[in-house]
Amino acid sequence: LIMPRIPPLSRKMNTYVTEEADDINEEVPDEHNIFTYGYAQAVKRGSKAKGLTDFFKQGGQNILDMWMGVAPIVMALGTIALVIAEFTPFFTWLGMPFIPLLELMQIPSAQAASETILVGFADMFLPAIIGASIESEMTRFIIACLSVTQLIYMSEVGGLLLGSKVPVNLTDLFIIFLERTIITLPIITLVAHLLF
């Protein structure tokens, strides 16, 4: 609800990727409501399907393209990020500005939790790996929820977005990651305080 209304996403053109798609009319005719029109459009689109064999063939091609194009990037970035996180103080330094915020939100083990906040940009599972030794269940809950809601991980989603026709660059992705972190952290912390 919030992200599309703030930069950098709010500054992106509201157009389709292909020029042919720009001619699509999304207005709902008077004789339909949004649900009946959506159903009619789905049936119309389904009638153009070539069959079950072509469906699985095209799906298999898409899967292979993803595996061959994205898997090496995922493994390389994930490994590099894990090495940096485990053997250097890099993410500790990056997390230091978050310590006062986490302490203000009364999150136990704020210093240990701060190290996991920005490491999520590299890979979704790194915060859980780094935060596994934290004793507080509440802090581990916050770390786990935050790592999922941050959504932009360079080892997976970020690599896919940069390789797609979606008009975002690395700077946009990092800004989106930070915004999602800042927006979801207070919500997750509030839920954690209610649960624990």
Rank of each mutant, 00 (worst) to 15 (best):
M138S: 10
S133M: 05
S133E: 14
A122R: 11
M138W: 02
E137K: 11
E115Q: 15
I117R: 08
L126M: 12
S114L: 12
F125I: 15
Q111E: 15
L102M: 03
L118Y: 10
Q111R: 13
M105S: 03
S114Y: 07
T139I: 08
I130H: 10
T116G: 05
L118G: 12
S136K: 08
L126H: 10
A112V: 01
F125Y: 15
A112F: 00
S109A: 10
G120M: 07
G131H: 09
I134D: 02
A132F: 06
F121S: 10
M105G: 04
G120W: 10
I107A: 03
I130T: 12
V119S: 12
V119E: 02
A122S: 15
I134A: 05
M124C: 14
F121Q: 07
A128H: 05
A113N: 11
A122L: 03
S109P: 00
D123N: 12
L102P: 02
I99Y: 01
M138L: 12
L104V: 04
E103P: 00
A112I: 03
L118H: 03
E103F: 00
A113R: 04
I134G: 11
P108R: 04
G120A: 13
A113F: 08
A128L: 14
S114V: 06
S136D: 13
L104R: 03
L126I: 15
E115M: 13
L102V: 01
A128S: 15
M124G: 06
M105A: 06
A122Q: 05
I117G: 06
I99H: 01
I134M: 10
P100I: 04
Q111D: 14
S109F: 00
E135C: 01
G131R: 09
A132Y: 12
E135S: 14
Q106D: 12
E135M: 07
F125N: 08
P108D: 01
D123I: 01
L126Q: 11
I117S: 04
E137C: 02
I117T: 06
F125K: 11
L101G: 05
S114W: 07
A132C: 02
I134F: 01
L101M: 13
A113S: 11
S109G: 00
F121W: 12
I117H: 10
A128F: 04
S136P: 11
L102R: 00
E115G: 09
E103D: 11
E137M: 09
T139H: 08
A112W: 01
I107H: 04
D123E: 14
